[in-house]
Design a protein around this nucleic acid. Structure first.
Lengths: 197, 197
DNA sequence: TTGCAAACAGACAGGTCTGTCTGCTACGCT
DNA sequence: AGCGTAGCAGACAGACCTGTCTGTTTGCAA
């Protein structure tokens, strides 16, 4: 059974349709605000099917976050691969964010929103895993770029990453991501050994 | 009728007790998760009193956010006043955040959490007002410090401010605020005219 | 003392939420 | 052909939520 998202075919399984519906509704309106009935109606799936597939709403939320994690990993990986210089690869994440924030349907970080809504659910593991991946990715790229303290630089870039999504959501201003890239660039100037830009 | 928070006296009015209860419960568990019944039970107030005082839960939430706005304004004002150099005054906000995040009851930015939970409520005005105040305060302090582009610097510091609260909440790590201050310091080095530290 | 306003206690209505359960349908495999 | 599994449709239970309404109590002031 494939867990991949529906790729436009009408032959998507119930699980795929549920995840697609959850992705749209949960992200747009919040995991707490959207009820099960809305999800199954949009997915065209019976309620019993949802519960036999996922067990509970909580686990559907966790699965929704996992699909977003995978999508973001894929997206960032492609953006990084497209760039050659270590410095540009470090900044690629902010270009991705700028792309996402440019869309008017952007609602910030799905993980930040989910944890703000639900307290101590099974989504916590998905959130921790996602954040560890973001941090680790920044740290790897920082090490590749020859940063003196890759962990410290990764932490600072992660702060800007979080701030950009939060700020873009609350201010409805896609320019936040560009400002974050500019700030990140300044941090790189200070943290990387001198080299031609 | 005073809108100030209860100052330890047992003679607090119903409105004050409601705001104190809302402040504790809404911040700790979320404005959507906590029901009216919990608030009035904790405040020791009748339900009818809440509705005659605030009109609706939505307006109680807005009032709760306003009290937090006032508390933060007071707190930041004191921290800024305690410092002399323009540079230290610009960084004072991050010291305040570090103080707050050190407490284990810290749950991040109340405004970010509230907007993640409730969609298009009357809280939006309170959030917009708060964010404009934060941005404006950074911009003033940046101008006082002689920044070449105070608005741009304020935007970058605001990003770090948002990132620190979001990150500290999700990672349960108070060190985020210290890292934010370190990053802010680097940004100041680049944005302020050279001067002795 | 009488009157009034504020606040308390709690029942109630109407709606929504998650999760379970009972039938029914339809397709694939043997 | 027949069987089994996956899935659809929808009723239902039990809990919780907001907001209203009816009384009762308390304290102050004239």
């Amino acid at each position: 059974m494939s867990v991949e998202m529906a790729t436009g075919t009408t032959q998507a399984t119930a699980k795929e349709r549920l995840l697609a519906a959850a992705n749209e509704l949960f992200y747009r309106e919040g995991v707490h605000t959207v009820g099960i009935d809305r999800v199954i109606e949009r997915a065209g799936v019976a309620k019993a099917t949802l519960y036999s597939t996922f067990g509970s709403k909580d686990e559907l939320i966790a699965a929704y976050l996992e699909t977003r994690h995978n999508a973001m990993r894929e997206r960032l990986r492609r953006a990084v691969d497209r760039r050659r210089s270590p410095r540009a690869r470090l900044l690629a994440a902010f270009d991705v964010q700028a792309d996402l924030a440019a869309d008017e349907s952007y609602r910030g970080c799905a993980f930040a929103n989910a944890t703000a809504e639900s307290h101590g659910s099974s989504a916590d593991a998905a959130v921790a895993s996602y954040r560890a991946w973001v941090r680790g990715t920044f740290a790897e790229l920082a090490a590749d770029a020859g940063a003196r303290d890759p962990a410290a630089l990764a932490r600072q870039l992660h702060l800007l990453w979080d701030g950009a999504s939060s700020s873009a959501r609350m201010d409805h201003d896609p320019a936040s991501a560009r400002a974050a890239k500019a700030a990140a660039s300044v941090l790189l100037d200070a943290a990387l050994p001198a080299q031609p830009k």
